[in-house]
Design a protein around this nucleic acid. Structure first.
Lengths: 218, 218
DNA sequence: GCCATTTAGTGGACACTGTCCACATTAGCG
DNA sequence: CGCTAATGTGGACAGTGTCCACTAAATGGC
């Protein structure tokens, strides 16, 4: 090892053995894991490359920099939240037009949102750590294809309106106060000033907020 | 400059000329300015010391580390929010017991909160960047001495109850859904997915949310 | 099927950060 | 006046994001 030859001395493991987008996907997965435990600040580029087993600079072949990696992780985190919400809503029985079922679906949306924030605080914070352009102006097209949190909320509100629970007058734009109330509680009780209220009290806060929302429909 | 003598060559400005707590206060002020433009992540210790005109390590005589400095900055930011809320509430005329005045005061609280979040996004984010123990369990003592956002909200709700606007039944714990709704909107429209809605639309979101809250009192 | 070109990973470097250590000076006290 | 604790300095280290030049592997045209 005294005389350092030009190069090509050691095989140094195999190079570029990974399939097509494996490194990129691996980096996002690693970043997601980091975010899960430490929030957005914990998704550090060098650590992610270390987990994937690649040199730091390799990341720059797939992302313009740390910010773009973080953006990908944020999107993934948001997708996980959306998937959970969709699963929760899907678990509620009752066909379209049933007022009670629609109410339960709205409640399920809120519950899933709050549970995700409580059980995965790192991912929740990460999901909202970057602007993903939630398409503010775009109203849902009625197909229910929009799987974003806002889209799912709109779908359920649509159903509530159809069932006659939510009156036309109140309906326009009501998704925002509702979203705000749930999101606000999630943030305050997650990373905010209410972060260390005991579990029982937190549950009561959830119920208070969901009740407040339910009362605001009529 | 060729021969570097041992030391004590140059007077290098005066050393320790600053009054008692000047450096500490200066660091917090500098950190607050950094937070104002870039949020909590922008309050970087070395930069703050640079602004104060002191070497980085000097900060460690006043804080155990960057986190403690940040904590002080967060408290300062929260104080600024609280002061603004108090000022806004104080500007509302009408004596205690007047239902309409109480309503306007509740509205003022929300408006000031949302305005602060919009006009000082960095400070707003910083105010909630650390757990300051908002004394969850401690109810206000009726003296109105609690100047925290939650305390001020409780005071106004107390007045609303006295004026008969808010019924006993609904009153218990209602500060949390209300706080959550306002805070959630502030976060969503500030750094969140709704960050780039045009000003007019944002104003409408404010009104929708405040209206939703007002409707939830009765 | 071979070779040129693009792609993807490596190695080394730089500036910047938070933090620790040993040292020097000053302030405030007796 | 002198001692001690408080406060600021200088230098160092590990860790980070990012840039550059280089190289090996995969890909596509012929």
């Amino acid at each position: 090892m005294t005389t350092s030859r030009s190069a090509a001395d050691t095989p140094q493991a195999e190079r570029r053995r990974r399939p097509r987008g494996a490194v990129r996907d691996g980096l996002v997965a690693a970043g997601l894991e980091l975010a899960r435990t430490g929030g957005p600040d914990a998704v550090v580029l060098r650590e992610a490359t270390r987990m994937v087993g690649v040199v730091p600079n390799a990341a720059y072949r797939h992302f313009t920099g740390r910010d773009e990696l973080l953006a990908a992780v944020c999107t993934a985190a948001m997708d996980e939240l959306a998937a959970r919400m969709a699963a929760g809503v899907g678990r509620v029985r009752g066909k379209h037009g049933d007022a009670a079922a629609a109410r339960r679906r709205l409640r399920a949306i809120g519950i899933e949102y709050l549970n995700f924030a409580r059980e995965e605080p790192g991912l929740f914070a990460t999901a909202f750590a970057l602007p993903q352009r939630h398409a503010y102006g775009a109203p849902d097209d009625g197909t229910g294809r929009d799987r974003t949190p806002l889209g799912q909320l709109r779908t359920v509100l649509h159903e509530l309106a159809d069932a006659g629970v939510l009156h036309r007058q109140r309906r326009d734009g009501i998704e925002y106060p509702i979203w705000a109330a749930v999101h606000g509680l999630a943030v305050l009780a997650g990373q905010g000033p209410l972060r260390d209220v005991p579990d029982a009290a937190r549950h009561r806060l959830d119920e208070l907020t969901l009740g407040f929302i339910d009362g605001g429909l009529a």
